[in-house]
Amino acid sequence: MPIVIEKLTYTYQSGSVNAFTALKDIDLTIKDGEFVGLIGHTGSGKSTLIQQLNGLMQPTSGRVIVDGYDMSDKKQRAKGRSLVGMVFQYPDYQLFDETVYKDISFGPRNMKLDNDEIDRRVREAMRLVGLDFDEFAEKSPFELSGGEKRRTALAGIIAMYPKYLVLDEPMAGLDPAGRRAVLEMIDGFRSQLGCAVVMVSHSMDDIARSAEKVVVLRDGRIFTCGTPQEIFSLADELYEMGLEPPFAARMASDLRRRGLLLPHGIYTNEALAAALAEYKGGRGNA
């Protein structure tokens, strides 16, 4: 069963003079196992939207249904929330316990699992994020490097075996190697745990790699939603909005403007290079 968002509107401090509508009329479905990329500039409402997904905030009007559980209902919310794992931007918001092991087991313990199951899950989660059990399990999370902290934070959510994994800017502040590593980890979770992924990112290059569906938010509304091919053909428009569309998409659009006839739907450097090779070959044959 999917996450279904129907006519979702959310207003901060609704009814007061400071009332501010952050989300307007959002309709969106997140299917089982799907990889959804969520894009929007600061203030577009994307943080608000992902907090609706696990009931940290409730709609002012409209509904959020997670696998049949209505997130506006207090009792159903607890059940729905346990299906949605949420990773916030900075691991520092999350890490608190004495050891990495205890910290990762916080979620599973809250789920009232038995000790053997908790131990099994913590080990599995650490393996999936690439933290060596013997080396890290007994370390304090506060003495880890930035990258290791992020892995620990991710493991803390993964150990809850979420059916939907929501990630808020998981690559912010990482160096290129760190970014690649996180992306590979996320692919790993999907293939090994079969969870759906909703990833918020400024960098569309990161989203372009794995997303099946891309949602662009603007001023609290869905500006556009579709496959990466469809979305990234709007590269120039997205760039003007203050976003960072994949380089290859902007490049392709610039080349077209200069008179090079390239097919649409190119958004990776590999695809662009291949298309240019074909163009050259085609012209050579002609």
């Binding site: 290129p176 290059d205 490049m251 450097n269």
Partner: peptide, 10 residues
């Protein structure tokens, strides 16, 4: 552990 800008990669 570094990279090149996307234009250089292309």
């Amino acid at each position: 552990g570094l990279d090149v800008p996307p234009a250089v990669e292309l």
